[in-house]
Simulated assay, not measured.
Amino acid sequence: MIVVTGATGNVGRTLVRLLTEAGEPVTAVSRKITESDVPPGVRVLAADLADPAGFRPALDGARALFLLISGDFVSAAGSPADVIGRVLDDARSREVWRVVLLSSQGVATRPGSASHGSTARSIEDAVRRSGMDWTILRPGGFASNAYAWAESIRARRAVDAPFAEVGLPFIDPDDIAEVAALALREDGHAGQVYELTGPAPTTPRQRAEAIGEALGEPIRFTEQTREEARAQMLRFMPEPVVETTLSILGEPTPAEVRISPDVERLLGRAPRTFAEWARRNAAAFR
Rank of each mutant, 00 (worst) to 15 (best):
V16K: 05
G23C: 06
L65T: 11
T14W: 02
R56V: 05
A28H: 09
N10A: 15
E35S: 10
V42S: 03
R43E: 07
R17Y: 04
A7Y: 07
R56E: 08
T8D: 08
T5M: 06
R17G: 05
I33Q: 08
G12I: 13
P40W: 00
D37I: 05
G9P: 10
P57S: 01
R56C: 00
T34S: 15
L65Q: 07
A7P: 04
R56S: 10
D48N: 10
L18F: 14
G54E: 07
N10E: 15
P25D: 07
T34L: 13
D60E: 12
R43N: 06
A62C: 09
A47L: 03
V26T: 01
T20H: 06
E21S: 00
T27C: 13
G12E: 12
V42F: 04
A7C: 11
L18N: 00
T27E: 08
P40A: 01
A62E: 11
G41W: 15
I33F: 14
T27S: 02
L59C: 13
A46H: 13
P39Y: 12
L65S: 07
K32I: 11
N10C: 12
R31H: 07
S36A: 12
L45C: 04
L49Q: 04
R13C: 04
R17S: 11
V26W: 02
T8K: 04
G54Y: 11
P39D: 02
D48Y: 12
G23D: 13
V16R: 04
P25L: 01
R17F: 03
T27G: 04
V29M: 05
V42D: 02
E35M: 08
V26Q: 02
K32D: 07
G61N: 08
L45R: 04
P40V: 01
F55C: 05
R31S: 09
A28V: 12
S30A: 15
A50G: 11
A53Y: 15
L19G: 07
N10L: 13
I33N: 03
V4W: 05
A58D: 00
E24I: 00
S30V: 09
G61Y: 03
V11P: 04
G12W: 08
R43G: 03
V44T: 15
R56T: 02
